[in-house]
Amino acid sequence: MSDLRDELKQLLDEAKWDWLMPHEERGRVIVVAGGLDLVEVGVAIANDNLSSVQHWISQCLIYKPSDEQKAVWSQDQAKRFDALIVQPYVLVQEQKG
């Protein structure tokens, strides 16, 4: 498991919303709440840890972006996200500031 965690840490990157839009159009973007560790969520998804993933979904800690969020993000050219690809998904977390 630590090998996967290390691999995902290396894949963690920064992205602008316009770079993420093609993935969103295919329904592949998952928003991860700021209180969660993006790599931990990626590990859980990669390992099919359904109990953790279902818990996060039920608590609205991971979710697909709303139309309102997408509209706001599209207006903000400076908006940046931490992004992690865990096939077939792109996990994103809003950067603060």
Rank of each mutant, 00 (worst) to 15 (best):
Val86Asp: 11
Arg26Glu: 15
Glu94Pro: 12
Asn47Arg: 13
Val92Trp: 01
Leu91Tyr: 07
Glu25Cys: 09
Pro22His: 07
Ile57Gln: 15
Ser58Leu: 14
Val92Phe: 00
Met21Pro: 02
His23Lys: 12
Trp56Gly: 03
Glu7Asn: 09
Arg80Phe: 03
Lys16Arg: 14
Leu20Tyr: 06
Phe81Ser: 04
Ala83Glu: 04
Ser66Ile: 03
Val39Met: 11
Leu12Gly: 06
His55Asp: 15
Leu20Glu: 05
Ser52Tyr: 07
Lys64Leu: 13
Glu68Ala: 12
Val29Ser: 02
Lys64Val: 14
Asp82Arg: 14
Val31Tyr: 01
Val41Leu: 01
Asp6Leu: 09
Val29Glu: 05
Val32Thr: 03
Asp18Met: 09
Val32Asn: 03
Leu38Val: 14
Met1His: 08
Arg26His: 11
Gln77Asn: 06
Asn49His: 09
Glu40Pro: 02
Asp37Phe: 10
Glu40Val: 01
Asp82His: 13
Glu14Thr: 13
Pro22Val: 13
Val53Arg: 04
Glu25Arg: 15
Ile62Asp: 05
Glu94Leu: 13
Leu91Lys: 02
Val39Asn: 08
Leu50Trp: 04
Met1Glu: 12
Cys60Arg: 15
Tyr89Cys: 05
Trp56Leu: 07
Cys60Thr: 13
Leu50Cys: 02
His55Val: 02
Leu4Arg: 10
Gln93Gly: 04
Pro88Glu: 06
Gln93His: 11
Asp76Val: 12
Gln77Gly: 00
Asn49Lys: 10
Gly35Trp: 11
Val72Cys: 05
Pro22Glu: 03
Lys96Cys: 08
Ser58Val: 08
Leu84Pro: 02
Asn47His: 05
Glu25Pro: 02
Leu11Trp: 05
Val72Trp: 04
Val43Ala: 05
Gly42Lys: 12
Asp48Tyr: 08
Tyr89Ala: 10
Asp67Val: 02
Gln54Gly: 03
Gly27Ser: 09
Met21Glu: 12
Leu91Asn: 04
Cys60Val: 10
Ile45Asp: 01
Ser2Ala: 12
Arg26Trp: 02
Lys64His: 12
Val72Pro: 01
Leu50Tyr: 04
His23Leu: 13
Glu7Pro: 00
Val32Arg: 00
Gly97Arg: 12
Val41Tyr: 00
Gly34Asn: 15
Glu25His: 12
Ser2Met: 11
Glu25Lys: 15
Ser74Cys: 06
Arg26Gln: 12
Tyr89Ser: 11
Arg5Glu: 15
Pro65Ser: 05
Ile30Trp: 00
Val90Asn: 03
Ala33Cys: 05
Tyr89Phe: 15
Phe81Asn: 01
Trp17Arg: 07
Leu12Ala: 13
Gln87Cys: 06
Pro65Gly: 03
Ala44Trp: 02
Leu36Asn: 00
Leu8Pro: 04
Trp56Val: 01
Gln54Glu: 10
Ala15Gly: 02
Ile30Asn: 00
Val39Gln: 11
Ala46Ile: 01
Val29Met: 05
Ile62Trp: 01
Lys16Ser: 10
Arg5Pro: 00
Tyr63Val: 07
Trp17Asn: 04
Gln77Ser: 06
